[in-house]
Design a protein around this nucleic acid. Structure first.
Lengths: 194, 194
DNA sequence: ACGATACTTGACACTGTGTCAAGTAAAAGA
DNA sequence: TCTTTTACTTGACACAGTGTCAAGTATCGT
């Protein structure tokens, strides 16, 4: 009967994901989640110690549903640095919209809560690693512009592709997904190659 | 005797600026400011209706002290698009560190408070206007890469120079002010010109 | 001396997070 | 079948921080 517990846990996570995704992540309270899941507020604290823990668990849960590894395959399968970079930016341009609202909820808490900050940094480091891979590939083919080292080039690409930049360009400036991808490819290529 | 009121007001603003600048903007409470200014908490509400109002007023007060117009002169005095862009990025690279902590305090409230959001957008629009000027100058000399329109090029430059990008590159990645300026100049030039 | 101005004092409402203790209901185990 | 355990509920409360209110004090100008 320990399956009832994990059933409830799953329901809570799913409800949290749903609310965060639709509500733009803004001001989703513990009470809101409890009501939406048809459960008492205290049950949330029984399963997750705090709002931050719930947020982190929900983020992971959501990630698992997205099957990121599989979609990253196309990047991994490329055979040269230029294709790799382009494929990576395509991947990223398609990935961020799926993750944005969850990420936003996390970083809003990162101001106050150390655990949320840690979780946020975790995710950021993961994406920086893939940036690093892309730049290292360019360097290994001798195509990295002498203006950059692998490290600083990675920093730049990481900043260029940051989620907040994505939000600024697509949400605030109104770029479409395709425009975002094409222009970021262009900028990254012009900056890093030669 | 109405000078006493404005004296106090000034003292409150200055104290707020001091606290925000040193404290990384994080968690500066009304009570903290009141104590630091040697005044009761309620006096703050007598002069400014809310935390957000105080924050906005403090930001303006701080801006006035910085004499931005004068430091922007060097940008305005340039005679061609390339110099203009370079001078602008130098200006920006020197400007952001002075403004960062205040800006951070403002945008942290922007999540919750509509007024803070409005104030934040105001500032952002101001900087976007100067970005637009830089890109329009390039275009007017026929040097803007055909990949861009003035509008999209402005969007890009605005994103590249966003305060959050600055924070990511200098604070998180550890770029020095000089490195930031040189590399951002490089990237902007490579992306926009041709 | 009078009254306005500037500020103080202390209490209180409100929101949202997190905690605690006692209670219920139903499945699991003897 | 009776008992224990598990999963959840209920309602109260502490706490932080913002914002409000009413009554009090001190000082300045006239």
């Amino acid at each position: 009967m320990s399956s009832k517990r994990s059933e409830t846990r799953q329901k809570l996570l799913q409800t949290t994901v749903n609310l965060l995704e639709k509500g733009q992540g803004k001001g989703v309270r513990m009470a809101d989640i409890a009501v939406a899941a048809g459960v008492s507020r205290q049950t949330l604290y029984l399963h997750f110690g705090s709002r931050t823990e719930l947020l982190i668990a929900a983020t992971r849960y959501h990630d698992d549903q997205l099957d990121v590894e599989k979609r990253y395959q196309k990047v991994a399968e490329t055979t040269n640095a230029s294709d790799h970079l382009n494929a990576f930016i395509v991947f990223w341009g398609e990935h961020v919209p799926l993750v944005y609202n969850m990420a936003q909820a996390l970083w809003e808490d990162a101001d106050k809560d150390g655990a949320a900050l840690a979780a946020w940094n975790d995710r950021m480091n993961a994406t920086k690693t893939v940036c690093q891979l892309a730049v290292a590939t360019i360097e290994s083919e001798g195509l990295l512009s002498p203006s950059w080292t692998v490290e600083t080039g990675t920093d730049f690409l990481f900043a260029l592709l940051s989620i907040r930049n994505w939000a600024l360009l697509t949400r605030t400036c109104g770029w479409s997904e395709v425009e975002y991808i094409n222009r970021q490819q262009l900028v990254a290529r012009n900056a890093l190659f030669l």
